[in-house]
Simulated assay, not measured.
Amino acid sequence: MKRSISKHTTEYLDQLNSAETKGDIEDYIFKPDSLDILIQNHKLKIVGLNFYPDLDLLLFVLNNKKVMKRKISDFKNLKNAGLKDLEKYFISKDGVHWEKLDEDLSLRGLLQYELTHSDVALSY
């Protein structure tokens, strides 16, 4: 199945890319977009993580009972870490942080990845 995202999301990502290229992202920092609004309105947050290094799998559990999966190897600072180091994280309102591994993953970034890499057609 062809991957598809909404026209609104595609336009936003194009505008953000253009603004980043010009070094003018202030509007995107101070004006919430649809992802920020989704997180706020549904009070979304990460409540747990599960690691499966042998499977190269990282599961993020959200408070709405949804699970997002990513490859551990997608993250430069996590891919060579042992299980003990992976398990030394803390969850904030914005995402997950590994101080020792110098890695920070935002809920917003994880959701954006889900939207742009979904095998299911999305619409608003």
Rank of each mutant, 00 (worst) to 15 (best):
L35F: 15
K100F: 05
F60E: 15
K100S: 05
E11Y: 06
L35N: 15
D14G: 10
S18W: 15
F30H: 10
K79P: 04
K7A: 11
V61E: 11
L83H: 03
L59D: 11
T21E: 15
F51V: 11
F51G: 09
L55V: 04
L62D: 02
T21H: 09
L115M: 08
S18R: 15
S34V: 11
G95L: 12
S106C: 14
G82M: 03
A81Y: 00
W98S: 04
E20M: 14
H117G: 05
I91Y: 01
V47W: 00
G82P: 03
D36E: 06
N17V: 14
D27S: 14
E26R: 09
H8C: 13
D27T: 14
I29M: 13
T116D: 13
I29S: 09
Y89W: 02
Q15T: 06
W98R: 00
I72Q: 00
T21G: 02
H97V: 04
T21R: 08
T116S: 07
K84F: 01
P32F: 08
I29Y: 10
K66V: 04
L35S: 06
L86E: 13
G109I: 07
L115C: 02
K88A: 09
D56N: 01
G23K: 05
I91D: 04
G95Y: 14
Y113R: 10
L62F: 05
D27L: 13
D94S: 09
K65T: 13
L110A: 11
V47L: 05
E103V: 07
L16N: 12
L49C: 06
P53E: 09
D102W: 06
A81N: 07
L105Q: 01
L44D: 01
L44K: 02
L13P: 08
Q15E: 15
L62P: 01
L111F: 06
G23A: 02
K100V: 08
F51W: 12
D74P: 06
K45D: 06
D85K: 00
G109N: 02
S92W: 05
I39K: 06
S73Y: 10
L57Y: 06
D27V: 15
N50E: 14
G109R: 09
V61I: 09
L58N: 00
L57G: 07
I29K: 12
I72F: 01
N80C: 11
N17S: 15
H8E: 15
L16G: 11
E20H: 13
L35R: 15
P32E: 12
Y89C: 07
S34I: 14
R70Q: 11
L105S: 05
N77L: 14
D102A: 03
E20T: 12
E26H: 15
D33T: 09
K84W: 02
L58Y: 03
L57E: 04
